[in-house]
Design a protein around this nucleic acid. Sequence first.
DNA 1: TTTTTTCTGTTAGAATATTTTCAGAGCTAA
DNA 2: TTAGCTCTGAAAATATTCTAACAGAAAAAA
Lengths: 292, 292
Amino acid sequence: MTNQEKQTVAERIRTSFESLTHTERLLANSMLDNYPISCLSSITAVASAAQVSTPTVVRMAKKLGFKGFPDFQAAIHNEIEEQISSPVTKFKRWNKAGSDTHILNRFADKAIENLNQSLAQIDPDEFDKVSAMISSDKHSLHIVGGRITSSLADYFFNHLQVIRSNVYRLGANPSRWPHYLLNMGENDILIAFDVRRYEHNLLTFAKIAHSRGVKIILFTDQWGSPAGQYAQHVFNLRIEAPSAWDSSVACLMVLEALLASIQTETWETTEARMNELETLFDETKLFKKFSG
Amino acid sequence: MTNQEKQTVAERIRTSFESLTHTERLLANSMLDNYPISCLSSITAVASAAQVSTPTVVRMAKKLGFKGFPDFQAAIHNEIEEQISSPVTKFKRWNKAGSDTHILNRFADKAIENLNQSLAQIDPDEFDKVSAMISSDKHSLHIVGGRITSSLADYFFNHLQVIRSNVYRLGANPSRWPHYLLNMGENDILIAFDVRRYEHNLLTFAKIAHSRGVKIILFTDQWGSPAGQYAQHVFNLRIEAPSAWDSSVACLMVLEALLASIQTETWETTEARMNELETLFDETKLFKKFSG
DNA sequence: TTTTTTCTGTTAGAATATTTTCAGAGCTAA
DNA sequence: TTAGCTCTGAAAATATTCTAACAGAAAAAA
């Protein structure tokens, strides 16, 4: 029985074919003929399609080891699910015909590919180490991004700021970066973002920070920012897109996954911080000034 | 009607999404969630999966133009037949067995699901219309985001700023938003971001902008910001994540796809702008000040 | 606030699907 | 041929699904 349950319904029919009666074989052939669609509608329809009576259908279902027709049909449904529920497959199948031509679909295809390839390159252990590093409040965090990546840096910063204390965002203007260096030492972590075209001042900054003992976590693209040589942990994320611009989707996803992980590690303290934040928002009605 | 019959059921749902009630949207999301398998079982099962009552299912089926639930389901069956009977490449599930345990994989799974589901709800024609709207330099663009979405707004703004002129970013402080309204009229477009928890001042702002004839394009989550009532185009993007935080991955992808589309439409003028920008960077060595 | 409208689930019963029963048809073997 | 058997579908019985009507809840408008 357990063995039987692992077979597809089609296989069960073929296996049991010898033991089926004449009329049941008619039904079996009809079912296999356009499997599994032929099995989707009601018992009445299935029966008449095979030109047999409904009791024949029930009897065969039971012979195949099902409790009844609904049970049989549920198995068919599960098979269909298995067959077409893979995310990528689903996407391919259920978007309009000719979907490959529309930029939205081309982009999505590429984005998913980027995600897969980026993930394949990430060592879960390293991910966990980074998560632990960022979670530990023994270190101050400094976040720096370039032209393209500043929004990502912002995003990460905004969330981390809620999760823990001592998170700093380096401004957009590199000429002021040296000032930040004054406060950075061996116990500090620099989270840097740098994708092509790599920014020279970031390289220099990383070099100096490294020489001061700052631990660097770098988010870069598949080719790797030169700043990687000074970094303790490097995430190489795919950014290719059918566009004149690169895609940050994979990077964002990893950042969000990191946030989820960090959040979990620090939940004890974070929960209180989040509640406090809610209270602050409510009390000051910071976001109500404009309401009529 | 004849036109409608050529759409897939998923497309019909997507097209009618705006006209659906709150509970019906729950159902629609549940159906699209694991489409089309989610629609295969009985009306009772479909209803309880979406946690709505069976009459709601019937009502929605009728709203979508079907005679009743059986008619609706027959359409699904036909679709499956169309899709499954043509030999399509079968994709393996990209993630290994047992991978479900690490947060990174769980997150990736969900992210891809979000992408698929978000895409399933986007009408390519509407996407193209929005792309055309943003591409046209007859309109000024104003971009506004909330607490959570400000980074996305920034990201979109940064890129659009390169692509075209007359793009403005509303500041983070809502109390200054009324000032911007002075410059906004019938020829202007407001690109707004609002996900849960929806921000009341944004709603008010959208209302006033709408009353001044401003066209609004809204990026929101699957439940829909209330500001949607004033918007000409609404993108409902999935944000669920195995995390205390929501995920912006799907939203970012659509933004990037839009940028790619806009970029293509405006390439003539954009090319010049980009070259000019490169020159500016080089000449001023804005980004070299810090180099050793 | 009060009124009106819209929405949504409960209920009941009609429609349909599924299963059981059973009689007769067809086959086989003596 | 005929007794004994299996097989099959008609029809009844049962279970389930589906729909219509309604009333209370929620939301919108006045």
